[in-house]
């Protein structure tokens, strides 16, 4: 017991302040070391109860995955639409009374218009040939005495925005030779509306999921605090603030969010692979090479960062509330 007397003659000497630059960087390293120790302590506690930790991790991952998939679906639809929009077509079906020569003339006149990029005339006989070739009803058509199909002009407008196409269609309807105007872009508009709806559902779901995650992570943290009540009590007795006592739990929340985010990006790869193998059959039928795209690096990082931030904040709210309630 005498060994310390030499070193420690005045046990109440004031603490040496470190103001030098070296001292500051040293204390920063110390701080990093301290936090690394707290974080690894929290991680090893999670590993002590692997089953329940894994369940929580999966809940967080699935919760993050659902809105992320919807946003992904919506962005895939948007890119699909962008590819189709260039091919918006307006088809004019001509009156039966219009002869082939007149039809060709109307078509040539229309092509001089500034708002039309290209177009071609389909005579009734050409239409019949195409129809019989593609429908396989040649035998039936041979029986017919007259050609039931009208002549048509297929136009591609310069401006493919829905409003401009509608305006063009209304003008062309006024032409005396024209019977019916059909705009091919209507289904595109519907698809665009569906895509917007999917995105809106994704937003609402994201809000619900964030609230749900706060509850799930908060409840997990609450149970962890309950099981370490004695320890928190001791920390408070020797002067630890609520924030000090909360630190390990903040790391627990952060780890749940981070792990859940990483798991969610891994799960989406599996989900998309499953979708794509089914989609391949469909796209082959449509002679398209369309494929669902994954989240990409930035979106994946966003999910992971968002998960970590939600986990940390949920832990902060839960731990401060429950630690405040523990009093010696």
């Amino acid at each position: 017991m005498s060994a310390t007397k030499r070193r420690n003659e005045n046990p109440n000497q004031p603490r040496v302040k470190r103001n030098t630059r070296a001292g500051q960087s040293e204390s920063l390293i110390d701080l990093v070391k301290l936090h690394r120790r707290i974080a690894s302590g929290s991680a090893s506690r999670l590993l002590q109860t692997p089953a329940s930790s894994l369940v929580t991790l999966f809940v967080v991952a699935v919760a993050l995955l659902l809105p992320a998939l919807l946003f992904g679906l919506s962005s895939n639809l948007a890119s699909l639409l962008a590819g189709f929009q260039d091919s918006a077509q307006v088809t004019l079906y001509l009156q039966d009374s219009v002869s082939e020569a007149d039809g060709q003339k109307v078509s040539d006149d229309l092509l001089t218009r500034r708002d039309i990029e290209s177009g071609y005339y389909v005579s009734p006989s050409q239409a019949l040939d195409e129809f019989s070739a593609s429908s396989g009803l040649e035998d039936l058509l041979i029986e017919m005495t007259a050609n039931p199909l009208p002549g048509a002009i297929v136009l591609t407008p310069w401006d493919v925005s829905p409003a401009a196409v509608d305006e063009l269609a209304r003008e062309l309807q006024e032409l005396p030779q024209v019977d019916v105007v059909q705009v091919d872009s209507l289904w595109l508009q519907r698809l665009a509306a569906i895509s917007n709806l999917v995105s809106a559902i994704g937003s609402v779901l994201a809000v619900i999921v964030i609230l749900g995650l706060f509850f799930v992570v908060g409840n997990t943290i609450k149970l962890a605090i309950e099981s370490r009540k004695a320890e928190i009590l001791v920390i408070k007795l020797v002067g630890g603030s609520d924030m000090y006592a909360a630190r390990p739990f903040l790391y627990t929340g952060l780890l749940y969010g981070l792990g859940g985010g990483i798991l969610a990006t891994l799960l989406q790869i599996i989900v998309l692979a499953t979708f794509n193998s089914n989609l391949e059959v469909l796209t082959q039928l449509y002679e398209s090479d369309f494929q669902l795209r994954g989240f990409g690096l930035m979106s994946s990082l966003l999910i992971i960062v968002a998960g970590a931030a939600i986990g940390w904040m949920a832990a902060l709210m839960a731990s401060l509330r429950h630690i405040r309630a523990i009093n010696p």
């Binding site: 310390t4 070193r7 603490r15 040293e26 110390d30 301290l34 920390i235 020797v238 002067g239 630890g240």
Partner: peptide, 26 residues
Amino acid sequence: ALPLEICGYPPSDAARRVRAALDKVG
């Protein structure tokens, strides 16, 4: 070391104090 950790002592400083205190009580 807990009270020192709470007060944010650098570990090297804390180590010296902890050992001195443990030495005092044998």
